[in-house]
Computed example of a mutant assay.
Amino acid sequence: MKNFGKYSVLALSAVLLFSCGNAQKGKEEGTKTATETAAADSLSKAAAQLGKVEFEESAFDFGQVKEGAQVKHTFVLKNSGDAPVIISKVTASCGCTQPEFSKSPILPGGKSEIHVTFNSEGQVGKQQKIITIQSNASNGLTTVQLKGEVLAK
């Protein structure tokens, strides 16, 4: 009986020890869930407060031009989001197409322009040049196209 008492005290201590640990674990998990929920809410609010790039036209068809002609076009974009948009980089699919753009922030509701010049020298036939725009907007990578046909000299 003496050993029974010793073992029952030991068993009771173990039960209390493990149950206290589980209670603390449950509290930590509850706090972690609340923290994760708050972080997720902050991220979704931040995402809702991003700028958004929208172009007035996604493609420009310059029709037919004689080889050697320079085609110039301006793509107009609007920030339809809730935060300023900054264009970080604009590239063209070919060295024959040169984009120019402003690095000034585009405020919500504001507009900006991307000027594109296509040099048709040596580019005979149907053409499709892709201009890729990188920015901090929610749609951070967007494209527009310049297309048409270059006739031989």
Rank of each mutant, 00 (worst) to 15 (best):
N22W: 14
K6R: 10
G51L: 00
K78L: 01
A48L: 04
F118Y: 15
S138A: 08
V116W: 05
T91D: 15
V71Q: 04
N3K: 09
K129W: 08
T143A: 06
S88C: 04
G140I: 01
N136H: 02
I131W: 03
A40R: 14
F75L: 07
A47V: 05
A137W: 03
K6W: 06
K126Q: 13
G5Q: 07
V15R: 07
S120R: 11
V76S: 10
I86W: 01
F55L: 01
A46S: 14
S135T: 15
K45F: 03
H73E: 12
A137N: 02
A47T: 05
H115G: 06
E100G: 12
S88L: 11
K78N: 00
N136V: 07
I133G: 02
E121T: 06
V124F: 02
E100F: 12
A11F: 11
S58G: 14
V116G: 04
P99F: 11
S93H: 13
V53F: 00
K45G: 00
L146V: 14
A38K: 12
G51S: 06
G21S: 15
K153A: 12
D41T: 08
K27N: 08
I133W: 09
G110N: 01
K103D: 09
V71T: 05
S58N: 13
E56V: 03
E54R: 09
C94V: 10
Q98I: 15
E67D: 11
Q134N: 15
A59D: 09
G26F: 10
F60V: 14
L141Y: 03
G125S: 13
Q123P: 01
L107V: 13
K147S: 10
S44P: 01
L146R: 12
G95M: 09
E67G: 12
A38M: 03
S104I: 09
G5D: 07
S93V: 15
G125T: 08
K89H: 11
E28M: 10
F75M: 02
L16Q: 06
A23K: 05
K25M: 09
A34F: 03
E36K: 12
H115P: 00
A23N: 09
Y7M: 05
N79L: 03
A83R: 01
S104K: 14
S104E: 15
Q98S: 15
A69Y: 05
G95F: 14
S135W: 05
G68W: 10
L43I: 00
H115L: 13
Q128W: 09
C94H: 10
G51I: 00
E113Y: 03
E56S: 08
G122A: 02
N22M: 10
S44L: 13
S58E: 13
V90S: 08
G95T: 10
D82Y: 00
I130P: 03
